[in-house]
Design a protein around this nucleic acid. Sequence first.
DNA 1: CGCCAGGTTGTTG
DNA 2: CAACAACATGGC
Length: 232
Amino acid sequence: MNNIIDIYNILLKIYGFQYWWPIVIDGKSRYLEEFSKRERTSEEIFEICIGAILTQNTAWKNVEKALINLKTKTNLDIKKIQNLDMTTLAELIKPSGYFNQKSKKIKAFLNFINDELKGDIIKIKNYTTEKARNILLSVWGIGRETADSILLYAYDKPIFVTDAYTRRIFSRVSLIKGELEYDLIQKMFHENLPQDSNIYKEYHALIVAFAKDTCKKEPSCDKCCIRNLCNI
DNA sequence: CGCCAGGTTGTTG
DNA sequence: CAACAACATGGC
């Protein structure tokens, strides 16, 4: 009896595999099955990192527009983006909102790639999860959820991504008491699931799907697939 | 029109 | 440390 695993299985059955993280191909975000079966290329890693920054408190649809702009203009080439001035970069990512903040964050991340990684974005792959997380968190503009999204989806590190949806859903089913710390919520998932990055990837994506579709701010409990486990 | 979206940082008591 | 403000566009 493990509610964390039970809920995963139910969500997987209802919503199916989500195949996160999406990559822009032919002008559209695509979620491809093959992404769960091979490592990400350095180009894909970079795109995931940028997308993770752009999606902070922002709908993916808007991020997609920004990523398409960046891809069209720079082919998401690190050097080309580095050579853009702030105003141009901000203009390209405008649809994702907070464009001044986010262009600063992207610049900070590019500096990090140059200075800490000597231009080699793959380098993090060889770090321990803990070291990789700490080094990402040291970058201005990268907080815990962004760092963990990058670690899990770009570098395939077994670390669970927690977000506002996770809080909402698991508070409602009373697996989270009150306002639990990010790291404590994450710990709960780590302790109740196999240490398997593919499960972490799917579970977080399923949480997002479920939160958008049913466990919304105003929940649609009548069609909820886990209502028998819930207390509201 | 109002609300919300795959958060993070900075400021204040 | 908690509470709160600031950051901003676009979809529904």
